[in-house]
Structures are given as C-alpha cells and as structure tokens.
C-alpha cells in the first residue's frame, strides 16, 4: 500500500513538473485591480447590507450603479460569485474561495465545455509568441464580467468596388 502511495505521489510530482515546464502563462487581473482593491471600501462586516435587491431597485447598488448586469437574469445576489467574508476573492458554488486570476474556474461551473476548450487553447485569443511564451488571456480579459456577451462592433469600411467590376460575391 505504501509503495502504491509513493508511486502515485511520484506520478503527481512528474505531471506537476511537466505542467510547470509548459511555457503558457495566463494573464492576471490583479495588475488592474491593485489600485482599487475591493477591501479598500468594503469591510467584511458591512457586506451583509450589500445583498442585491430585486432588479427593480438597482439604486441599492450605490456606487456600483453603473454596473450593468446582463447575464443570468435569475441571479440577484452579488455573493453568488463575490466573496462574502473576504471581498478580494471570488467564491465557487461549493463555497470554495478562489483568487481573481482563477476566474475560469468560476465561469467553468456553468460553461464547462467552453472552459475545456479554453484549457486546450481552442477558445480565446492567442497572445505572446507561438514559439516561445504563449500568453493566455483569461475570461474577463475579453468578456465583461457582468455582461459577458461579446458586444457588437463597428466594422472597418469595405473595399472599394472596382470601377468596371461587378458588386458580387467572390470565388
């Protein structure tokens, strides 16, 4: 039995080392948030008064009135995702506390397929270098946290129609 445990431990260690050697790094939103950490205003004791009321009374959000929440309409409570005890953290549905840079774990609770694709590099933007160090943006780098649907954009102008050409399809 002990041998088995040792073998499992070694395998885990090897896999961890392989993982650590891969040259993929993820973005960290901590850089953006370090100037205004949530805890600079929110003391853990005052948080209980912050429960989001039904969406007809959005003024209860106070200073966060500008936050437009367009995601799951049935969610009425900030603390479904935000940490209640420590406002600088996020919480999963099972009560586990995670840091802001681990937000894919939070999104992956519902969007498991997308999270799986993101893990493999199939979903999301590519940054950095294809050869050396790949940088992997996390969910909130591209999607707004409270309104994750990708916004519509203004397209750049179309090419000029050739003078003697016909405005028709290609190929």
């Amino acid at each position: 039995m002990e041998i088995m445990i040792k073998i499992i431990f070694l395998m885990n260690l090897v896999s961890f080392m392989c993982y650590a050697q891969s040259s993929v790094v993820t973005h960290s939103p901590i850089d953006k948030m370090q100037f205004y950490p949530c805890s600079s205003c929110h003391q853990p004791s005052s948080l209980s008064a912050m429960t989001l009321k039904p969406r007809t009374s959005r003024k209860s959000l106070g200073i966060h009135e500008d936050i437009e929440f367009k995601h799951m309409p049935e969610v009425m409570d900030c603390f479904m995702c935000h940490g209640h005890k420590n406002p600088d953290t996020l919480v999963l549905l099972d009560g586990q506390t995670i840091q802001y840079e681990e937000v894919p774990l939070l999104c992956g609770q519902c969007h498991g397929l997308k999270k799986g694709e993101w893990d493999q590099g199939l979903h999301g933007r590519l940054e950095g270098s294809w050869k050396n160090q790949k940088i992997k943006p996390i969910c909130t780098d591209c999607h707004k946290a409270h309104m994750p649907k990708f916004p519509k954009l203004k397209a750049f102008p179309p090419p000029k129609v050739p003078k003697f050409g016909r405005k028709k399809g290609e190929h």
Binding site: K152, L153, K154, A155, P157, P158, P159, V161, K167, K168, G169, E170, H171
Partner: peptide, 27 residues
Amino acid sequence: QYIKVLELERGSFNLEKSNRYYEGESV
C-alpha cells in the same frame, strides 16, 4: 487587400452568393 471578408447568409454556404462589400455599423 489580402484578406476578403465574405458575408454569408446564416444556414447557407454558397460563396458565389456572398457579399464582400457589406457595411457594418454593428457587426
């Protein structure tokens, strides 16, 4: 321009019916 972005009807895949001169205020 090297890249041509062709606009197609959702559910179709006939490139001859595509439009590369589409205007997009909100695509």
